[in-house]
């Protein structure tokens, strides 16, 4: 290669190079968080619905919450809803549209390695969930919630739930059209909001149905969180096992069938 002094003057003279990978990860994560927090529909799912549900259902006795104080029953369920809204619904919809508009393909041609993109998405989900925990937990405390149990057990459950939902969300987003992903993700959200032990106790369902619902990721996560936060139990291994099975199956299926374009 010869150097051409005249070419040095133009701003377009080649000067290629990737940014350090740590900076790329930071940039991608902040970019994704900013886009997510700007999206009205996503905020409705991840912030408005959980907060409104917690507040309304604590104030008014709509469902029988058995032996629990209403707020002690509701906060763990709403936290499970938060994880589902962020790691499943919101992740699936955002990824589906990014795929539809070719953003994922375009990024695959950029210096950003694919694992960095996936890690940035994971970090984005965790940051949004942390904001949700602060929001819902804070509102719960203001409404008289008295949490018990080990915070570590709660974190383990939240992470297991996140992995379970993220696998399923990415499977949807990577295989269906964006519009179909949008519809399916919202439908699942709505169904599991009602049937996943979020606001209605699963003990009210017939035993066969109840077992099936306890095996959904939402049912397992809500039950597990409730046994720690309301009952003060140790880590509920049954719930963790259910979530782990969903996580392994969902992530493996997503890795196998996800199409980038």
């Amino acid at each position: 290669m010869t150097t051409t002094p005249s070419a040095g003057r133009s701003p377009f003279a080649p000067a290629p190079g990737a940014a350090p990978v740590g900076l790329m990860l930071l940039a991608q994560t902040l970019f994704e968080i900013r886009l997510l927090l700007r999206n009205g529909e996503q905020l409705l799912l991840t912030a408005a619905i959980p907060v409104v549900l917690l507040w309304l259902l604590t104030a008014a006795p709509v469902f029988d919450t058995g032996d629990y104080e209403r707020v002690d029953f509701l906060v763990p369920g709403i936290l499970a809803l938060c994880v589902m809204s962020t790691a499943f619904t919101s992740l699936a919809i955002a990824t589906g549209y990014e795929r539809r508009y070719g953003a994922l393909k375009r990024l695959a041609a950029s210096p950003l390695p694919r694992w960095t993109l996936l890690l940035a998405k994971a970090l984005t989900v965790l940051v949004v969930e942390a904001l949700q925990v602060v929001l819902v937990g804070g509102l719960g405390l203001a409404l008289g919630w008295q949490p018990s149990g080990s915070p570590l057990a709660v974190v383990v459950l939240l992470v297991a739930g996140t992995l379970a939902f993220a696998g399923l969300g990415l499977l949807l987003a990577g295989t269906l059209r964006a519009e179909a992903t949008l519809a399916a993700a919202n439908l699942v959200y709505l169904l599991l909001l009602v049937l996943g032990g979020v606001v209605i106790p699963l003990s009210g369902f017939p035993s066969g149905v109840r077992t099936a619902l306890e095996l959904t990721p939402t049912g397992a996560l809500a039950d597990g969180l409730r046994s720690v936060l309301a009952d003060g139990a140790g880590l509920p291994w049954g719930s963790v096992a259910v979530l782990a099975v969903w996580a392994v199956a969902g992530l493996a299926a997503a890795a196998r069938w996800f199409r980038w374009e």
Binding site: A15, P16, G17, A18, A19, L23, M24, A27, Q28, F31, R34, L35, R38, N39, Y97, E98, Y101, G102, A103, K105, R106, L107, A109, S110, P111, L112
Partner: peptide, 22 residues
Amino acid sequence: AGFYPGARPVELLTHLARLHAY
């Protein structure tokens, strides 16, 4: 093709610039 539907033009370019060294 190849854009984040919710991003603004300058925002997208600023982000992509951060993935490069120069």
